[in-house]
Amino acid sequence: MTALDPQIQDLPFVAGEDAVLHVEHLTKRFGRTSRWSRSGRTVTAVDDVSFDLRRGETLGLVGESGCGKTTLSRMLLRLIEPTSGSVVVDGQEVTGLGGADLRRFRQRAQVVFQDPYASLDPRQRIAATIAEPLASSSKTRAEKQEIVTGLMERMGLLPGHAHQFPHQFSGGQRQRIGIARALSVTPQLLILDEPVSALDVSIQAQVLSLLQDLRTEFDLSYILISHDLSVVRHVSDRVMVMYLGRLVEVADKRDLFTAPRHPYTVSLLSAAPVPDPAVERTRERIVLRGDPPNPANPPSGCAFHRRCFHATAIASGMPDGEVTQLDDGSRVPTACVSTVPLLAPQGSGHWSACHFPVTDAAAAGVTSAL
């Protein structure tokens, strides 16, 4: 990609830079039927998502459970089919691939799963597990053995481990085996789905350091899905924040952690623990009202408006004609209830989907402690 269509300048695409992944207006709706009605209902798990991933970049993806992160990653890997939208990997549209073309694509895009034990076949020896993605390749047995041996050595595994089974390894070792399996076909894109959440803290640091080294060594691009903001901050170059199927903020790591523009991002940062006990006791916390909305019956306008502390604060200074009172008695700007906010630029490389973006002063009490 060397230039952007003027109609999509306001989306988080990489202008004038090479993008290994280009996602445009990706949407996934799941059908739902009711016992009491013949009419079908749909749940929108991913709603009109667009972004780019630079070559050699780590792009973090954060959000509450159920916001659509895993569904998005599965569409990128073609494990589930999108309802609409486009996924382009290294210049090739992948949403319509099949047969041999799809198998070749699967060699370019791999995944490291959250649970290193559940992702490995307990009946398969480690050497066979690492070599499994090579089954459809044209490489000889000797070439496959050389790849497996080299990857095991790179992951810090001993030659004798090749004939052992997953239950004979620690969690950290099993995750290294999963990483080796993903790298056996030399992919360009690696999706890391909570890759260290099941590991002890000391092992987490080792695996994250390994992943950073491998990114340079193998010329990889990562999408890192995580609930742990400290992991995202340590590893990512840019961060995407997702809420109820939509991207609500995309920014460089530094901008997102120091100058968030969406109230949901501010609330996530306020919940992130700080290692200094004195700071932790005195820092500002934001407790959101209520539970996340039901994706089968989402609220109108901004999906976050019923829980948004910022909308309530903004409404207090607005004329009555521009404010709507909700059924819980709170008041929010009418625009938040009536109109879905779209991603809009908030500075260089920073996008936020909010009618009333948070100012530096409003976020200062949260971000100053991070």
Rank of each mutant, 00 (worst) to 15 (best):
Q212W: 04
I223F: 03
V231Q: 01
H227W: 12
R215V: 02
L220A: 13
R233Y: 09
L210Y: 00
V207T: 02
S209C: 08
V235K: 05
D228K: 08
D228T: 09
L220M: 11
S226Q: 11
H234G: 12
R233H: 13
D228M: 10
V231Y: 04
Y222P: 06
R233K: 12
F218I: 10
T216N: 14
Y222G: 09
L214D: 09
S226Y: 08
S209V: 05
D213R: 07
Y222F: 10
Q206M: 03
V232D: 07
L224F: 14
L208Y: 10
L224G: 10
S226D: 11
S221A: 02
I223T: 01
L229H: 11
L214F: 04
L220Q: 13
V207R: 02
I225G: 08
Q206K: 00
Q212N: 11
I223R: 05
R215K: 11
V207W: 07
V232G: 06
V232Y: 06
E217C: 09
D228N: 15
L229N: 08
L208I: 02
Q206W: 01
S209M: 05
L210M: 09
D219V: 14
I223Y: 03
F218C: 15
Q206L: 03
F218W: 14
T216Q: 14
S209G: 11
D213V: 00
F218D: 13
L210N: 05
L211W: 02
R233F: 02
S221F: 01
H227F: 11
D213W: 03
F218M: 15
D219T: 15
L208M: 09
L224Y: 07
S221G: 05
L214K: 00
D219E: 15
Y222A: 12
R215I: 04
R233G: 12
I225Q: 08
L220K: 09
Q206F: 04
S226A: 15
L229M: 11
S226P: 09
L210E: 07
L229W: 11
L220T: 12
V207D: 04
L229V: 05
L220V: 07
R215S: 06
V231W: 02
E217P: 06
R233T: 00
V231L: 00
V207G: 00
I225V: 14
R215M: 08
L224I: 03
L208W: 08
D219S: 15
L224K: 12
R233M: 06
L229P: 06
L220G: 14
L224M: 10
Q212F: 02
S230C: 10
H227C: 11
S230F: 07
V235H: 01
H234V: 10
S226C: 11
L229D: 08
R233W: 06
F218S: 12
E217Y: 08
I225H: 05
L229K: 10
